[in-house]
Amino acid sequence: MRRRPNYLAGLGALLWLALVGLPLYVMLGATVQTREEYSAGGPLAFPRSFTLDNYIQDFGNGFGQYFLNTVVVTVSVVAIVLLLVPPLAFTIVRNRGRGTSGVFRLFLLGLAIPAQAVIVPMFYVISKAGLYDNLIGVILPTAAFCLPVCTLILTGTMRDITSDLFEAMAMDGASVRRTFFQLVLPLSGSGLSTIVVFSALQAWNGFLFPLVLTQSEETKVITLGLYNFRTQYGINIPGLLAAVVLSTIPVLLVYLFARRALVQGLMGVGGK
């Protein structure tokens, strides 16, 4: 059946396109202009010159260090999540004991805890543990707050493994460990990639924990760097926006090459 084109929807879509596209255009345009040109022409003017000085200046102001710190945090958080969540999800799916449902309920409850609610005690715990202003002190809570969503995603994937396969493994006398490594893990690929992307994004974009748990230049992550640049740069808007662009490049690369995994990771449980 043919439907007439929906002009109203098209108009709305165009409006949203402008609302999203314009700021992105201004951002990219500003970063390739000199400061003087941006101040003179304003944000909406088309850039007449092309310079990468703004980006170079960011690296001169410590962006490289921030980038490195963020990579360390992100890789560590993903590693912790990958180490802890698969055995947990495997137990929740395959263990029928009463303790298991209690554990699952604990993580479901965890979904409702906002990070904002625990920054005060987290500051207390991390300070007492001597991890204040240490990247480890950022990594541990960030990873912990990824666990509920990742557990939910991965149990969803593992539930789809049919029980025939488990029975076949048991017939062969496979140990729990073999079942885990040779059946469960290979068949959980999509769930695993989703939790990797999800936790990586959480770590990469994390702001609150680094803000209250670190203070020195050596432990600064990118988001904090952006926050600092905003006050430090003052009227140097091209330099500031260049840092915003730089902070997004890795995510953009993942978006281009692994769009499905990224979107699923972004959605977390929201997509379920």
Binding site: V85, T91, N95, R96, A144
Partner: peptide, 23 residues
């Protein structure tokens, strides 16, 4: 081929320590 509760222990302890205890 069914895992014991021990498999869930590391994640649970870690989560309790950094999310439940602060709460």
């Amino acid at each position: 081929g069914r895992p014991g509760l021990a498999w869930a222990l590391p994640a649970t302890i870690f989560f309790a320590l950094f999310a439940v205890v602060p709460l």
